Computed example of a mutant assay.
Amino acid sequence: MIEFRPLPDDHPDLAHSPMLRGALLTLQYAQEHGSIGLTKTKAFKRVFVHWAVEHFEWPGKSAEEMFRYNKVINEYEFLPLEVLHFLLISLRLGRHYKGEFRLTKRGDELAHAPGRLFAEMIAYFILRIDHASYARFEERPFGKWDVWMNVINVEADHGTTEAALFQAFYGEPKDWHTAGWREMAAFSSCVLRPLGWAGLLMETREENAEKYVCHVFKTPLWSSALKLDTDNMLQPMALQ
């Protein structure tokens, strides 16, 4: 069972969520400017996309890095914003009207309410969205969120690796440098990445001449926001 605990708006661990931060900034921008312009295909116009790239502070997608190779960035080239746009419309926090993205009454209410917005958005994002659809990757990993999150709760409690988590679920050692890289990619894109975007997991990457290793850790927001069946299996970290 997965239960998301309600958190007050001033809870410090909410700062770990890139998706929440991006949503708040988008709602506040629309609130301040009255709307956000849309293209003919109903994507955010480039002026807002550029603003989002500069202000979201998205992990691994700094403005300097993104503008280094592309002076013009469209919504589909900043994938977190494309997914966030879909979420805000799906949750009816915003709507498209006469070529603009405008806040609904609910979106206007939550623009400055991080705890309530987290409760409204993050469980829906993790549990209800088809993550393979925006990963642009056909394969979907076998499994369900109740199992994935309860196992990760234990396995990543003191840190683990992407490859070790894959093996814990599927019993086979796969990695990006092995023939099983496609299975690893599906697992990473559809399970680990959504949890990272939600702010529940964080990753550090290590590369050398021989292989690439992705280390996975739970953020403080994981234990603050989640109540899981395996919580009683967690062991305190041993003091050195």
Rank of each mutant, 00 (worst) to 15 (best):
I2P: 10
I2H: 06
E3F: 14
F4W: 09
F4S: 15
F4Q: 15
R5K: 15
R5L: 15
R5Q: 14
P6Q: 12
P6N: 13
L7E: 13
L7S: 07
L7T: 06
L7A: 09
L7N: 11
P8M: 10
D10F: 13
H11P: 12
H11L: 12
P12I: 00
L14Y: 08
L14P: 10
A15L: 11
H16F: 04
H16C: 12
S17P: 13
S17G: 14
P18V: 11
P18R: 12
M19V: 11
M19R: 06
L20M: 06
R21A: 02
R21G: 00
R21Q: 03
G22E: 12
G22R: 08
G22Q: 09
G22C: 10
A23P: 02
A23I: 10
L25R: 15
L25T: 06
T26Q: 10
T26Y: 12
L27A: 02
L27Q: 04
Q28I: 03
Y29C: 12
Y29E: 11
A30T: 00
A30W: 00
A30R: 00
A30D: 00
A30G: 00
E32K: 01
H33M: 13
H33R: 14
G34I: 08
S35M: 07
I36W: 11
I36L: 15
L38G: 08
L38C: 13
L38T: 12
T39D: 11
K40P: 04
K40W: 06
K40N: 13
K40C: 07
T41G: 10
T41P: 11
T41H: 13
A43S: 14
K45E: 08
R46Y: 02
R46W: 01
R46D: 03
V47C: 03
F48G: 03
F48S: 07
V49I: 09
H50P: 01
W51N: 01
A52M: 00
V53E: 05
V53I: 10
E54A: 01
E54I: 00
F56L: 02
F56H: 04
E57S: 12
E57N: 10
E57G: 09
W58E: 13
G60V: 04
K61I: 00
A63I: 05
A63P: 14
E64A: 08
E65S: 08
M66Q: 05
F67W: 01
F67I: 03
F67S: 01
R68Y: 04
N70E: 07
N70I: 03
K71F: 00
V72T: 06
V72Q: 04
I73R: 06
N74Y: 06
E75K: 09
Y76D: 07
Y76P: 00
Y76K: 05
F78L: 05
L79V: 14
L79W: 05
L79E: 12
P80C: 01
E82W: 15
V83A: 03
L84K: 03
L84C: 04
L84G: 03
L84M: 09
L84Y: 08
F86H: 11
L87C: 07
L88H: 04
L88C: 02
L88K: 01
I89V: 14
I89H: 09
R92A: 11
R92V: 05
R92N: 08
L93R: 11
L93V: 01
G94A: 15
R95K: 07
H96V: 11
H96D: 12
